[in-house]
Amino acid sequence: MPRLHPRVLHQAHKSDTLLPLVLRATRDLTSAKNELRWLRDFVAEPQRNTGNILDNWAARRKLRQLCVERAKGKPLQYIMGTEYFGDLEIACKPGVLIPRQETAASVTHLMERLQKSKLLPEHVKLLDLCTGTGCIPLLASYELVQKYSRKGRLEAVGVDISSRALSLAERNLRRLSQDGTIRIEPPSSSLSFIRADILAEADHNPSDCVSLMTALQLYEETQQSNDPTADRKGGWDILISNPPYISPSAFNRTTTRSVKRYEPKLALVPKDADASQYPGIDPGDIFYPRLLEIAKQVDARVVLFEVADLEQAGRVAAMAQQQNIWTVIEVWRDNPSQADDYGGSEQTSVATGIKVLGRGNGRSVFAYRGGAKA
């Protein structure tokens, strides 16, 4: 990490004595000023009606404490407890991956594209694997139910191996439902979170964590028992996943200090990335063959998998091509809805014939199968 020039530090201290602390984390004066303003508002908010809270000694001490935490690299989202994900404010806490805006852009674009295609069935079933905070199924539900006022039923399920993540996802669901941000109103819409080991193909140790297929079977049985008259169709229409996709070497070499120190490695690096049972697979790609196998098992019509960059996107797109079941395979950049610089026809270095859409870094791989193009 480059040293800050003394002149920049002097300028920051002259502006505000707390600013140099925040500057250590942001390395940019404009960003530091913005973050310090947000932290002031965060400290002032609970007692905003009692006057200028920052004139209070205890409040100034609290603000300084938060600035010291930020100086050590603690993410602002963990300090303030929330992050925006599309139109939703998602609760965050240490031990659960912080939602990224680039992921939200892909989810929003997918929901818009599927809505415009008019190819969604009356009863849509959406499965999100490695759900973390629950941000993806929450945003998908918000987009389809509120934004597009879609008729018919939406059934969404988020899956994770982390009990801590699932607890936070449930908390986000309750809070956003209670304040009216999202409307989950059975039987027209439902959103559930379940625990499962996505990489496990069988229940080697069910007392610890069951496999995904066992968890989905138990979920279906519960839904059927709750409503015996319901027509429980098989399969899932949409499969989304933001899996761990960083190899151990890339994690050690390129991941920022803040992410290494504060965000869960379980959500970033595949847990079996060094295992020998994946010959020929890049250590960061371990989840993708399994995700594509699951997509086939659950008869998914649409998949959207987040990736690290264009190089990994090319490898994942090539895996999808080898299945010979997808009508359309595309790579989306950070902003897939924006016009790209290549006329939508740039080829990845690995998977030929794959369109790369949007602007920014390679972000996700989209695939669709059916009689018409989505």
Rank of each mutant, 00 (worst) to 15 (best):
I294A: 02
F42P: 01
Q323R: 14
A59G: 03
T181K: 07
D41M: 14
A44E: 13
D197H: 11
L110W: 04
D334V: 02
P121C: 03
L216H: 01
I182Q: 06
E112R: 15
N34E: 12
F42Q: 07
A59T: 01
L18Y: 14
V124M: 09
P248I: 12
P264D: 01
I90H: 05
I246T: 03
S247Q: 04
R153G: 07
G152A: 10
A91I: 08
G280W: 02
L126R: 03
T254L: 06
Y148E: 08
Y78K: 05
D231S: 10
F305N: 01
R369H: 09
Y278V: 03
I53V: 15
L127A: 13
R3G: 15
C130W: 05
Y368D: 04
D299G: 06
P187H: 10
F366M: 01
A44T: 13
A105W: 13
R195K: 13
E143P: 00
S249C: 07
D309H: 00
E112C: 10
T30R: 12
S207T: 14
E102L: 00
I182E: 09
R301H: 11
P228I: 03
Q347C: 07
D237Q: 00
R24N: 14
E143R: 11
A300K: 02
S167A: 12
S258I: 01
A230G: 02
Q47A: 07
I79R: 05
A156S: 12
L212A: 10
V303H: 05
R164Y: 10
P244Q: 12
P289T: 06
T327K: 12
E220Q: 08
A140I: 01
R183I: 14
G360C: 06
A367D: 00
S162W: 12
G235L: 11
A165S: 09
R261G: 14
P270F: 06
V159P: 01
L76H: 09
I325V: 15
A200N: 06
Q146H: 15
H109K: 06
R290T: 15
N335L: 11
R27I: 04
F193Y: 10
P270L: 09
A308V: 11
